[in-house]
Design a protein around this nucleic acid. Structure first.
Lengths: 345, 345
DNA sequence: GCACAACTTGAAAACGTTTGCAAAATAAAT
DNA sequence: ATTTATTTTGCAAACGTTTTCAAGTTGTGC
């Protein structure tokens, strides 16, 4: 640092205080087994007495571990992402790791420079949350044998360890639920077109319609970009359609909120006039009125699982890479109901 | 690391490749002025040719800088916090700093162990977002002369550099706005009682009522804890009052959303029957229907300012510590209107 | 040409750890 | 008592930088 900090307490000070060599101190600190219990005791008490804190820089330079893992997220301020980070953070904290957070703001360049920096010494592992350009570095990560895990990205390759929800299945369930409530005209608010999860959800929606012999109506599919405002606009468009939908399946909760706004603005009620179903189950979805019926992605849990996977790869580089699919159950609240009997025009 | 990584490219390799001593390479990398342009050129080309990336651990160990700053937040998944982090992240990225993120989950122990770790080598500076127990470490930070900035915490001391909104003034403005719309019964949803900002906002509300000779009604003040669900519950309570409020001033947007839910559930309209006013102006507030009239805190900007302050303290330890108050204007949208003519009971 | 300043450079000493190696101490086996 | 294994220790060499120091170079004014 700059303004010369008050002399640090180092391992040597501890050694002196405890009357042992500094290598012994290091061994105690790292929980080596072959060390005299008496000295071990003396070292620990010296440590607390002097308030020693290990210098991570030095430790990692000398070949130890940084106990830092990097997390790459597209943006912040999205509750979906917030939840995942929360899970990551929890799992990491309990494993005594620190979290280096990077935001790409969907800029490709930032993603790759970041990964470069990380893999060169700073972090021991890497978590990628719905990366925009995964191919760009997945390969380099892989060949450098740098531990990483991808969260919520439909496999862009076969070798990347991944934790992901069952997007297709969940979309099938959700659509089926609406159909069995009696809906035939079901609007669909599509997520970001280039994300695999959005595509899978749409696939589930479309194929379920077909399975029930309900004709697919292209005019009932609109873009919501996974955001509230676009979801609102999309829904306004949906409500203009000649034979408007009696239910709307939004690709995520945020766009479902937008849909709610549009429906209400129109003077219609939820679920009386129109049912709305979301995806994610972000915390708000439970506290909004009416409670949003939605597909639950265990976001925080996904973050935790990703951390566990990552740590196991770090500890044991031979550990076989996995792809874990978490369950995504339908959470039934108050925003869906059978369609109202058709009104006169 | 563990699984021996393919031999790193070090400064010595560059030196060899460029035919200079490694001290010279270091000088080039650190933009020293007195170095032969020819050699400088040779070094840079060697750097790109070999794909050299500096080892931050070694750099900082040798007395350089870590280019990491720590950010301590109470939790994630709150859009308010997300916005601040976004600002911090942006400013940091453009200054080429990395962000170490810690979440306390309001556990006191975590706050202090974290600060301890940080100040001992990892980070060059520290950002504290609405800390729960600031006293615990503000003092130690201060006496260690470790650079830090507190965001959005009403001064718990006189010496901590702070960036904060004008909570009192803004609350006065907001309350006055409601009064001038014609409201006399104004409900207040209180924020977390132990946070200075919540207290200030309440003070502004109460004093403005008095200034207008409107009797303060304790039954119109309820707790919302800055969260949506508690805000919802609080509002239900407010609506039960004998002479219910015609407007509600919520201490933040999240609890304002809860209020909206409760009002709607009651079958009332916003702002027709009841006006609602929030605080923060989180992104959602613009996209919710009706648009929420609210006090805007420039959250992202506050994050950026905090970073700028922090970096200037890091660069120049003599830099006088400041307390910066940002403006918090009232953003008028659609959730407030004059009170409806009183109905019959 | 000379003295002196300013610019360039390389060698070497930190920075605070971990860890391989070999010596010392202890325990176990003969 | 002597050898042989096993623990337990300290020394010293990394790890990859920055930075001080002093030596070498070049340039300037006389």
């Amino acid at each position: 640092m700059n303004g010369k900090r008050p002399a640090r307490v180092t391992i040597k000070d501890i050694a002196h205080e405890a009357g042992v060599s500094y290598s012994t101190v290091s061994r105690v600190l790292n929980h080596y087994e072959h060390v005299n219990p008496v000295k071990r005791q003396r070292v620990w008490s010296a440590v607390t007495r002097l308030g020693y804190v290990v210098n991570q820089q030095a430790r990692s330079l000398a070949g130890g571990h940084t106990r830092i893992i990097g997390l790459l997220v597209p943006e912040l301020g999205n509750p979906y992402i917030g939840e995942v980070i929360r899970g990551v953070d929890e799992a990491l904290a309990s494993a005594q790791y620190d979290l280096l957070l990077y935001t790409t703001h969907r800029q490709k360049t930032r993603e790759s420079t970041f990964v470069k920096a990380l893999t060169h010494g700073m972090a021991e592992g890497l978590l990628l949350l719905v990366p925009t350009e995964p191919q760009a570095y997945a390969e380099s990560l892989c060949q450098e044998e740098f531990p990483y895990v991808v969260i919520d990205h439909q496999g862009f390759d076969d070798y990347s360890p991944t934790v992901i929800g069952k997007n297709y299945e969940a979309a099938v369930n959700a659509t089926r639920y609406l159909i069995e409530l009696g809906h035939r005209r079901i609007g669909f608010i599509h997520g970001l077109r280039h994300l695999g999860s959005a595509i899978e959800r749409f696939r589930g929606y479309r194929q379920t319609l077909e399975a029930y012999n309900i004709p697919f109506a292209p005019e009932l599919v609109v873009d919501g970009d996974f955001l509230q405002w676009p979801g609102y606009l999309a829904t306004k468009q949906l409500l203009e359609v000649a034979d408007p939908p009696t239910a709307i399946f939004a690709s995520n909760d945020l766009s479902a909120f937008g849909a709610m706004d549009a429906v209400r603005e129109r003077g219609l009620t939820i679920p009386g006039d129109i049912s709305i179903l979301g995806f994610d189950d972000i915390p708000q979805s439970a506290s909004v009125r009416p409670g949003l019926t939605t597909v639950r992605q265990p976001l925080a849990e996904m973050g935790q699982i990703a951390v566990r996977m990552l740590l196991s790869y770090i500890e044991n580089p031979q550990h076989p890479r996995e792809r874990i699919e978490v369950n995504t159950p339908l959470i039934i609240r108050d925003s869906c109901a059978p369609p109202a009997p058709r009104r006169k025009a």
